[in-house]
Structure formats: C-alpha cells, structure tokens
Simulated scan of single mutants.
Amino acid sequence: MSISTERMIARKEILHGRVLHVTVDTVEIDDGQGGKPKTATREAVWHFGACAILPVTDDGKIILVRQYRYAAAQPMLEVPAGKIEHDGENPAECAHRELEEETGFSSDDIQPLGYVYTSPGFCNERIYLYLAKNLKKGHQHLDEDEFMNLEYYTPDEVEQLIDKNEIVDAKTIANFQKARKYLF
C-alpha cells in the first residue's frame, strides 16, 4: 500500500482572524495506485505557528507559567510560549521575545529542540521547541490581557505532574520530553 497525496482544487474561506485562518477545502486524492482520483472535503485551520521554551535556572529548576485557558475552561501549567507574529518571523526571535515577555528572564543560551504539530488532522500549527539556560533576570512584559504566575519545579517534579495529569498541555509535555537528556 502506498501513501496517498491530496491537492486542493477549491477553497471556501470561513474565517480570517488575527490568529487563525479557517477554510473548507475540496481536495483531489491520488491513491498512489494509479486508480481514478477521488475528491473529499477538508476543514482546515491555518496558523503562523508558535514557539515554546523550557527555561532552566542555574540551580536546575524549570520555570513554568500558570494561566487560565479559555478554551479549556481551566488554569493550566505550561512552558512559556507564544505565537509567531507574522508569516516569516524567525521562530528563534519569537522564543527570545516570549521568554522575556512571559517570565521576565532572557538568555543568550537558547537551544532549538525541534518542533511538533499540535493537531495535524485539521491544523497546520507547528510549535518550535527550545531549551533556555543561563537565564538573566529582567522584567515581565505581559500583554494587557495576560495574567500568569511563575512556578519553579525540579525535573522530577515536572515528570510527576505530567504523570498525575496536573500538566496536560501537549506542548509542555513534548518540550519536556525533548529536553530530558539535558535535564537529568
């Protein structure tokens, strides 16, 4: 069996917002077997992407932020993160900006750890993951509508919080997993 490919042949714009672009697309599917192409409908969410940073203090503590998440209807414990502001923004620049905005720390030692797709079945959002060390204390620069608390945990504590479903944010779990070899 081969992998099929899909090509958009028609698009209906549903929403073009500040953060998201939503479309309903008609696609032609090539089954890769030489059969007659089929068509299907795909609802898709388009996003510039984001970055997520796992900041580690000199004494080995991981800085997480606790903030209320409207769509989840609950406060969540997460790594600092933020959206890429425009198409073409360098994810590393986003990481530096978001680290300082959300935590008040900066770093010249931010290491890329790769990226993850949040929900590739319907969304193209790619989150670039980073590890930040050698932190320098500064000041938070939260947006007007952002409210968050900083919390400090050892890697073992973060692992326990994940195991107990007290950390359920996918980008945080992925970022922690990608950074594990640098933490233990």
Rank of each mutant, 00 (worst) to 15 (best):
Gly121Ala: 12
Ile173Ala: 06
Gly32Val: 07
Asp169Met: 04
Ala179Glu: 01
Val27Met: 08
Met1Thr: 10
Thr103Glu: 02
Asp145Asn: 10
Asp109Phe: 07
Ala72Phe: 14
Thr118Trp: 00
Asp163His: 12
Gly104Asn: 11
Thr118Glu: 08
Ala50Phe: 07
Glu125Met: 02
Asp25Met: 03
Phe105Val: 09
Leu113Arg: 06
Val79Ala: 09
Ile14Val: 15
Pro120Asp: 06
Ala50His: 01
Val19Gly: 03
Leu142Val: 14
Phe105Arg: 00
Thr103Gln: 02
Ala44Val: 13
Arg11Gln: 08
Ala40His: 09
Ala73Glu: 13
Ala40Gly: 08
Ile63Glu: 06
Pro37His: 06
Leu99Pro: 03
Val56Gln: 00
Thr57Ser: 11
Met76Thr: 12
Phe176Ala: 01
Ile3Arg: 13
Phe48Lys: 07
Tyr68Gln: 05
Lys12Thr: 13
Val19Met: 10
Arg11Phe: 01
Pro37Ser: 03
Pro155Tyr: 12
Ala50Thr: 09
Arg126Ala: 15
Ala50Cys: 13
Glu146Ile: 14
Asp145Thr: 04
Phe122Tyr: 15
Leu142Trp: 06
Ser2Pro: 14
Gly121Tyr: 05
Tyr130Gln: 05
Tyr182Arg: 05
Leu77Gly: 03
Gln74Asn: 03
Glu159Leu: 13
Tyr152Met: 03
Cys51Asn: 02
Tyr70Asp: 09
